Simulated assay, not measured.
Amino acid sequence: MKIKEIHFKDTFPVRHSVLRQGKPIETCFFDGDDSDTTTHFGLFDQENCVGVASIYKNKNTIFNNNEQYQLRGMAVLEEFQKKGLGEQLVMHAENYIRLTQGELLWFNARVAAVPFYERLSYQKIGSSFDIPDVGPHFLMAKEF
């Protein structure tokens, strides 16, 4: 398995399969995907992209840190889940943020994914909330 930087459009097949199944492919484009301050990573099994994660330089006013990044579109194809690959993607993103002098990584985690992120030392912030057409989430974060 290898992780490398990819174009935002290359995230769509994995995002669609895992995060937007049954919805139009257009729903796989997230605000900021095409920004110069956004970086997309793909996890490859041979030549096949089996996991993706996107890092946006994005400030959440809940936090006081100056250098904040947001994780979005984190997904691993179902047949590759539960093999530590998601953890590899998150660790890669964390290393990238440390190299850019980032102070905090935050994201909205689906309720089912909360235990995964808690194992990686992320903290839930506040109560759960609903994202329309997606479902309940928790704000989670980790400082560096």
Rank of each mutant, 00 (worst) to 15 (best):
81 Q>A: 02
85 L>M: 13
75 A>P: 08
81 Q>D: 00
82 K>L: 00
86 G>M: 09
106 W>F: 12
109 A>K: 04
86 G>E: 09
116 F>D: 06
74 M>Q: 07
95 N>F: 12
69 Y>E: 10
69 Y>A: 10
81 Q>W: 00
111 V>L: 09
75 A>L: 08
116 F>Y: 12
93 A>K: 01
98 R>V: 13
98 R>Y: 11
105 L>G: 04
82 K>F: 00
93 A>S: 14
79 E>N: 15
95 N>W: 10
120 L>R: 01
97 I>G: 11
100 T>G: 06
71 L>W: 03
74 M>K: 01
78 E>A: 11
84 G>Y: 05
86 G>D: 11
93 A>P: 04
114 V>C: 05
109 A>Y: 04
75 A>G: 12
117 Y>W: 08
101 Q>S: 15
109 A>D: 08
100 T>W: 10
75 A>I: 04
89 L>R: 01
75 A>M: 08
77 L>Y: 01
106 W>Q: 04
89 L>Y: 02
98 R>N: 12
86 G>L: 11
109 A>L: 08
85 L>T: 08
101 Q>G: 14
90 V>C: 07
70 Q>D: 01
119 R>I: 00
76 V>T: 12
69 Y>G: 05
120 L>P: 02
71 L>R: 02
74 M>L: 13
92 H>Q: 05
89 L>G: 01
88 Q>I: 06
110 R>N: 10
93 A>M: 15
106 W>H: 13
73 G>Y: 07
71 L>E: 03
69 Y>W: 15
87 E>C: 04
119 R>A: 14
89 L>T: 00
74 M>F: 05
105 L>C: 11
107 F>D: 03
70 Q>K: 12
108 N>T: 03
107 F>K: 05
107 F>M: 13
86 G>W: 03
101 Q>A: 15
84 G>A: 10
103 E>D: 14
111 V>G: 01
98 R>H: 13
82 K>P: 00
109 A>M: 08
114 V>K: 10
120 L>D: 02
97 I>D: 07
100 T>P: 02
108 N>C: 10
109 A>E: 04
108 N>V: 01
91 M>K: 14
110 R>T: 09
